[in-house]
Design a protein around this nucleic acid. Structure first.
Lengths: 345, 345
DNA sequence: CTGAAAGCGCTTACAG
DNA sequence: CTGAAAGCGCTTACAG
């Protein structure tokens, strides 16, 4: 029922193979014939069938995008629409599409990836998360299937993996140093899920900054929470119940910070007068907290864009060297951090 | 290089057609043969090639999901991950995949849709938005391609369109009535983009509620803003500059409410003591505002789930009647609305 | 219950 | 510069 290459061929009085060559704009076809064929295509409203093309070509022109498990509330983090916007922006440029995978649990995701890869449903894969000991990464490597991860693969020995990341270690270190400069010594750290590599990196940065400043790390000051929203609130309760309340909080994610600030406000602890808060990501809504939060911009859009870029490179040049791209971060000072130097002196 | 049906056939000593039947679990194949073939598949690590299957089958087992234009900041609304989670949940059940489209501008989206449809890249389409006079809807209708829209198609004459929606008119009416009951008479309305059908419906509900209460609608109390975040803030400035300041605000979306509350706080107008605020959507983060916002839960997940459900129905039974599914909404009372009856008496 | 053959709609050596 | 033919990896009437 759909118009095929044959219909066009008949109409234009050429062979189907010629039509095919016109579609791919082969230089071996004369301009006159091209004209003729294009007219026929126009008149008949011809559109190439994607599956036929993919089958013959062994190329799907689509990128697989794997989200973290959707059972987790992290899924609703506006981080994802924004990375996807970045990916999609690059993909569009070169006329690739996006096949989105959102499994509920890890095993489901793993099976989906297998199907995508072996079933040749996509030409390459972008992993939107990077977890400690992730089966998916292992599988993709052993299949030698093009993929890039957003974040850093946990295992250092995986130096053949292309990834796009922020320097999360450095960002966390910088943030801690910033608080130290403001006179804070009791700095707590509210991290995300411990099996995400980013959490590990943040923690390291925090640790080293304290160490360099000669401040002992207090275990009670370091907490991790799975659920973004509730997590932030529980963390605050824990920390504020301590004898030695922290004077500053480093929070893994802006959304979590909303929970943190809300809880603080319920306890009538004022930000930044009583406590400073700083977080990561600079989501669009992060400037809408009251007061607007100080956070680290990680350029989410670019993370996505570059990931797509690297993946395409790999697909086109499978033999090229793996790339490691670091997207710069930037401290966005707003109103949740305050110097306490005056207090002490 | 990949294992094909032929390889399996050879290994299992049967014809390729038999292997194909085993894959589709045809009842006409004996259990013994099935066993044998499955073993061979297992040993060889066979996975069906998706494109070949789609081509022969004329079915891609994938759902196209069209997002609103990504140039707009609405794109980052956590509404989208949540609908997608709903869609994806249903899709997974029946082993369908999701092909995600995110054009930057309307024309691009329109072209993409054409390619998806004509190129048979997907079996059906879910539109995640519903705009006044949308070309895409017109096109899909005329192509007689299966699709469902989340929201309500603008043109009433399009009664052949399947959609999943909230009763946004009723929700807005209820919200207004709730504020009236609390004693508010000066109620302002901060709507979203006027070319989204949901905005139109909200406005109608607001209007009728006021009318029923015998309160004249003041034009200055009705504002619309495109950009979610800045929009909310500008709106507040406009409204608070009026001689007759409103005592209550109805805001189109929770994210916008963050902007609204932030601005109010800067003006040292206290919520809910000086002004009540109520909004729509009940995003996860909506309970993290300070104070936590009163909002209308629209069950975003279910909106997505049902949309996928309806679409699948259409794909499987093209002749079935179009469906109109209304997902119930629910007022979530938190802490941004306050009765002002005491004041007056 | 199973096989041989044609077909899905393209692409691409091979020939001329 | 163009065409005829084989092939991509499946499915599905048709036969037996």
């Amino acid at each position: 029922m759909s118009v095929t290459i044959k219909d066009v061929a008949k109409k234009a009085n050429v062979a189907p193979s010629t039509v095919s060559r016109v579609i791919s704009n082969s230089p071996r076809i004369s301009e006159r014939t091209k004209e003729k064929v294009r007219e026929a295509m126009e008149e008949l409203g011809y559109y190439p069938n994607f599956n036929a093309r993919s089958l013959a070509n062994k190329s799907t022109k689509t990128l697989g995008v794997i989200m973290p498990n959707s059972a987790n509330k992290t899924f609703q983090n506006p981080f994802f629409p924004e990375v996807i916007r970045g990916i999609s922006s690059k993909a569009h440029q070169i006329e690739y599409g996006i096949y989105l995978n959102t499994g509920q649990v890890e095993e489901e995701i793993f099976q989906d990836v297998k199907n995508m890869v072996q079933g040749r449903r996509v030409d390459g894969i972008i992993l939107l998360y990077s977890k400690v000991d992730d089966k998916v990464i292992g599988y993709l490597r052993e299949q030698n299937f093009p993929f890039t991860v957003i974040g850093r693969p946990y295992d250092e020995s995986f130096d053949d993996i292309t990834y796009v990341n922020n320097d999360n270690y450095k960002a966390a270190k910088m943030v801690t140093e910033y608080l130290l400069l403001l006179g804070h010594k009791k700095i707590a750290f509210i991290g995300g899920q411990l099996d995400f590599v980013v959490t590990v990196d943040h923690l390291e940065g925090y640790r080293h900054a304290l160490q360099n400043a000669g401040i002992e790390l207090m275990d009670e000051y370091v907490v991790f929470h799975e659920e973004l929203q509730e997590g932030g609130q529980e963390a605050v309760i824990d920390l504020m119940s301590l004898n030695q309340r922290p004077t500053a909080l480093i929070v893994a994610d802006d959304i979590m910070t909303f929970g943190v600030m809300r809880m603080l406000s319920e306890m009538e602890i004022s930000v930044p007068d009583d406590i400073s808060v700083i977080s990561f990501n600079n989501l669009l809504i992060s400037e809408l907290s009251t007061p607007p939060m100080t956070t680290v911009d990680i350029n989410i859009f670019k993370l996505g864009y570059e990931a797509a870029n690297c993946l395409i490179e790999q697909i086109l040049h499978p033999e090229a060297e793996p790339k490691k791209v670091i997207i710069p971060h930037k401290l966005i000072k707003r109103q949740t951090c305050k110097s306490i130097l005056s207090r002490d002196s």
